[in-house]
């Protein structure tokens, strides 16, 4: 796939996701209160925050898996009423179908609704190749490591060619070295597909490595505290002064040492 000729700034000027004043309460906790946020088309947006700040709830609301009590969410100008193939989701614990092979998992979204199958086989092969799993087409999830499982999760979410990729702490359970490589590969895929990405994490380093913009959320009640545009060229060096500076500023913003809480 060729790189998109548009720069990410051009794409961001068009709003893809609009969250307006969204609230959501569970029993006694206010998971989200008056959350507003907009994500530009083609933007890579990371949401960071401590446990219980509602970042996952917000992501699930955008996915249409959770119904907010108040406010509205628009995707491409249309209100979200439920899940849809325009929004692919990558789950923290992979959520692969254990009875399906790698191929079967990647294929799942292509078969609903049924599509032109001559094309589908090629599409599945292309995706498996994209995430570097060729040779593992017939393996079952139980045979894969955490990093490989999440590659399948990403390929499966990409299969229906969604305009938006929603990722819920996708690399939280993989080891540090695998995570570094997955970051680079995810950025490659993002550059190739030009999708809008909303990526939830509690790891500030991860957010600054990936994002165009980092949204910092606060807990009790879950709300947007501030946002940071990360103006560093990719690939980013974690040891560079700019990088360290962004991480320190975001950590200050979060106030408490969240790494020890998580």
């Amino acid at each position: 796939m060729a790189l998109s000729s548009e720069s990410s700034v051009d794409r961001e000027s068009r709003e893809k996701i609009t969250v307006r004043n969204v609230s959501r309460a569970y029993d006694s906790t206010q998971a989200l209160e008056g959350v507003s946020l907009s994500v530009g088309e083609g933007e890579f947006c990371c949401i960071v925050g401590p446990s219980g700040c509602g970042k996952t709830t917000l992501l699930r609301a955008i996915a249409g898996l959770d119904d907010p009590d108040g406010g509205s969410i628009l995707v491409g100008g249309d209100p979200v009423t439920g899940p849809g193939l325009d929004r692919g989701m990558v789950f923290q614990e992979y959520a692969l179908f254990p009875w399906r092979t790698v191929r079967g998992n990647v294929r799942f979204g292509l078969d609903r609704p049924a599509c032109d199958c001559a094309d589908c086989e090629a599409r599945v092969r292309e995706l498996i190749d994209l995430v570097g799993l060729d040779g593992f087409e017939d393996a079952y999830p139980k045979e894969l490591s955490g990093g490989m499982k999440q590659r399948v999760g990403i390929a499966r979410a990409l299969a229906p060619d969604p305009e938006i990729l929603l990722m819920d702490e996708p690399f939280g359970s993989v080891d540090a070295r695998t995570r570094d490589r997955l970051h680079a590969e995810l950025l490659d895929i993002w550059a190739q597909t030009g999708q809008t990405v909303v990526f939830v994490t509690h790891d500030i380093d991860e957010a600054v490595t990936l994002a165009d913009r980092v949204v910092v959320m606060d807990a009790e009640p879950g709300s947007v505290q501030s946002t940071f545009s990360i103006g560093i060229e990719r690939p980013r060096e974690r040891t560079s002064r700019e990088f360290v500076d962004y991480v320190a500023r975001i950590r200050d913003e979060l106030g408490s040492p969240i790494d020890t809480i998580e």
Partner: peptide
């Protein structure tokens, strides 16, 4: 049945 799996299926077009 895990809700993770049903959630994944709904985002993949199972209605």
């Amino acid at each position: 049945v895990s809700t993770d799996l049903t959630d994944a299926a709904s985002t993949l077009g199972v209605e």
